[in-house]
């Protein structure tokens, strides 16, 4: 049963990443409300979302890889 907490935190992480991905494409006002609601449900949501946002920022600083035919 020790795994059930891990599974929960993986699920929270997955949801946080999904929000960051959706934000990157743009959120409607309704979706934004939904995100804010999700963040306010649980501090763990906020933490996962902050971690995912930070990781997202780092990935944006990596230059694009070389073309395959280089």
């Amino acid at each position: 049963m020790a795994n059930s907490e891990d599974q929960d935190s993986e699920q929270v992480w997955h949801t946080a990443v999904e929000w960051v991905i959706r934000e990157h494409e743009s959120l409607s006002p309704v979706e934004r409300e939904e995100l804010i609601g999700w963040l306010n449900t649980n501090p763990a949501h906020r933490k996962a979302y902050d971690d995912a946002s930070r990781l997202w920022l780092i990935t944006g600083l990596v230059p694009p890889s070389e073309p395959a035919d280089d």
Binding site: V17, D51, T59
Partner: peptide, 10 residues
């Protein structure tokens, strides 16, 4: 695929 990429970085 995008999720997999992010999870791998994490």
């Amino acid at each position: 695929l995008i999720h997999e990429a992010i999870d791998h970085c994490r």
